[in-house]
Structure formats: structure tokens, C-alpha cells
Simulated scan of single mutants.
Amino acid sequence: MIAGDRPGNWPYPRWIAHRGAGKLAPENTLAAFRLGAEHGYRMYECDAKLSADGVVFLLHDATLDRTTNGSGIAGEHDWATLSQLDAGRWHSHAFAGEALPTLAAVARHCQAHGHWLNIEIKPTPGTELATGRAVAQLAAQAWARDPERTPLLTSFQPDALRGAKETAPQLPRGLLLDTWWDGWLGVAHSLECVAIVCNHALWDAATVARAREAGLRTLAYTVNDEWAAQRLMDFGLDGIITDRVDLFPPGR
């Protein structure tokens, strides 16, 4: 099945835990995935980038400073260095010693528990194509025996999605948007995206209708208020990404 065929067969849960469990645990760590599961979530969003020696690991920021005890540009360090960092103490003492996970470890965790994943390709600037290719190659291999839970690959960077498409065209892709920039729909079609993932404030009845007419699924980030969630559910959005795993039961 090619990516363009997937909109008619959307397997993913509507509610998606942002970076594992939002803000209740250190983002993009296995501890966050475990805590999200405790709240009933079965799909998670995470951020993936490349180490200097080509290991795909989870981290949102370009630099290490905010969420680890390291410093500097994350993609300039090799995995041997990154793997020794503390990615939990910044959040709270209870998570001290939590490590940065590789995407391979996250894949094993999700498969062991029957969970789904939205992998945001978050390249270090200048590595967009390489990161897209590496993430797609790993994902294609890791989920080869679990096609029912194939991850959704998304990115704000068209070149990252282009790298993913070149490497594993069978994997579903989504274009992330924080504004409706000129030509977004043409780019989404050229990349054979199956979904558009927007800042929740961008969605209204007209934009939802336009995306659907184009054959695209609709997802929103980051939805942490009841009024915003209800508005999106009224529009019938396919995916809602939230930090508030404690507020929104995923079965609603």
C-alpha cells in the first residue's frame, strides 16, 4: 500500500499524547510513554533527530540545554556522549537519571504494548534530507512485522518529508503547519502526504473542508483546553495532540 492510499484506512486513535505524556513527565523519554499509557493513551507524538554518528534519538530542541544536563547542539554530539546524559532531572527529582531514548528503543516499547506513534522528524538545521531518510529507514525496518501500527511521519520541513518519501514511500506522511503559507497544499500533494497537522487555531469549518476535499486527514496540536478540544471534535478532526493526558480521557 502506498502512502496516498492510506486516508481511506485511518488506523490511528484520535487522542495523541504530546511528547509521551505532555508535561507530567520529562518529554520524549520512555518514562513519558509509560505515564501516558497509565492514563489510557495508546498513541504518542515524539521528536526524532540524528546524532553526529547517525543514531536516531528523541529530542525536541536543536540544543541539549533545556531538557538535559548537556549543552550545545545535540546533532553535533555522537551517541556515546548523548546516551550518558540525564534527560529527567530538569523536570523533577523523581525522574533523575532518565536517559534519552533511541527511536529503535521507542519502537520496541510501542510494539510490546500495541501502541501507535507519530514521529515528528525534527532535523538539526542543514540535515533535513539525511534525517528524513534515516528516520524512514529505521521506521520501515522496525515496523516491518507490525504493519497495522505503522507510524505516521510528520515534519514542518518539506525536505525531511522528501527524504522519508524517497527512502520508504510506503510509510504515511503528514505536513506540519504553523501558518497557511502559500503553496502548502501543492507541497503536501507532491510529497504524497496523507495528513495535515496544524496549530489548532488554524482549523475552522472552511479549512477542514478544504483539507478533506483534497483527500487529507486533519490533526491538531497542542490542545490543552476543553473549549479548544470540543471545537475540534465538533469539526470531526482525525487527531488531537495534547499535553493534558490527565484532563482528556482518550476514549472520549
Rank of each mutant, 00 (worst) to 15 (best):
A142H: 02
L152R: 04
Q141C: 12
A134S: 14
L152I: 03
R133N: 10
T127G: 01
P172H: 11
A168W: 02
D159K: 13
V135A: 09
T154M: 05
K165P: 00
T127C: 09
E148V: 14
A130G: 05
G132W: 01
T179P: 00
L176P: 03
T131H: 07
K165I: 01
D178L: 12
L185G: 07
P151V: 05
A168K: 02
G132V: 04
A134K: 10
L185S: 06
W181A: 12
T150P: 04
Q141T: 15
L176Y: 08
A136H: 06
G126A: 11
A164P: 00
G186P: 07
L175R: 02
A140R: 15
A134Q: 10
R145F: 08
A142Y: 07
A160Q: 05
P125D: 11
G183Y: 02
R173M: 11
D146E: 13
T167S: 11
T150Y: 04
L153R: 02
E166C: 11
A164H: 00
A136N: 07
P172T: 13
A142S: 13
W180A: 09
A134F: 12
A140K: 15
F156L: 01
L177M: 14
A160V: 02
T127H: 12
G132E: 04
D178H: 12
L129I: 12
V135S: 08
G132K: 03
L129R: 14
P158N: 07
E148F: 14
V187C: 02
W181R: 14
E148T: 15
T150G: 05
A134I: 12
K165W: 09
P125I: 10
A144E: 11
L161P: 04
A160M: 08
V135W: 09
A140N: 14
T179M: 10
